[in-house]
Amino acid sequence: MTELEILATGPMTTVQDAGRFGHADLGVGRSGAADTASYALANRLVANPVGAAALEVTMGGLRARARGAVTVAVTGAPVPLRVDGRGAATDAVLHLPDGAELSMGVPARGLRSYLAVRGGVDVPPVLGSRSTDVLAGLGPAVPAPGDLLPVGPAPAGFPRVDHVATAPVGGPSIDLRVVLGARDDWFTPEAVATLLSREYEVTSRSDRVGARLTGPVLERSRGGELPSEGMVAGSLQVPPNGEPVLFLADHPVTGGYPVIAVVHSAHLPRAAQAAPGTRMRFRL
């Protein structure tokens, strides 16, 4: 049986796939890879089917040993990568012989790196998905040193390229396209103008649930409480302190604070790569 032996996980490594669909009416969120674009690219490099489970590595630090020969690819936040001590490339197909050790350093830019293994991480699915939802406590256990992660059978297809060129991931500041609403009418016109013209910084109180931002306070135009309503990833929810939270993959299914704007799905992967300290600008 082919396995990945986890030697170190860095600050946090989880198993993720394309997410858990169709159970939101039971109060179960979508979860899944936070940066869906980098995750999909890693799977494509090793010719995995769409939706195969991979490892999402936050701020690098993963070390893993191949038990049996494996083919892997690392995408997303560019980590210094070594195989048995020798430098290796990200965004590239890597063949690890039995016993080889792959180790990641800390990414200079970005936040989340993805390790796809040909055949996928074959832990048992929960409600149709191998994603760990850290908010709901649902899905595969968070990998820890000493764990052996089974690798699934190799897919029929073979990798078609050795290496891909990608747009830079992460950086000191990012622009995100938003659409106002659904509750922009709960805010003053000045608040909407502020959101669209000023910068917000990602704080260290950020995780897979959401990026908690700090910046100019967004004033409400009305009092009262919003009855809880369904949320989508990308929602900029504004709690009473006036500083928005940008919801990511493990966001709560429903929320009771108004959403001033939602990040367009095409820019969600980039939002998920915003490390603490990153400055965000929101544009229509």
């Binding site: 169709g22 159970h23 939101a24 009855p227 309503e229 369904g230 949320m231 429903t254 799905s265």
Partner: peptide, 17 residues
């Protein structure tokens, strides 16, 4: 529509990209 999320006064329909 991939998911339907009923709530107190709303129903959210999540859609595929």
């Amino acid at each position: 529509v991939t998911d339907v999320v009923p709530a107190a006064r709303t129903v959210l329909l999540r859609v595929a990209p």
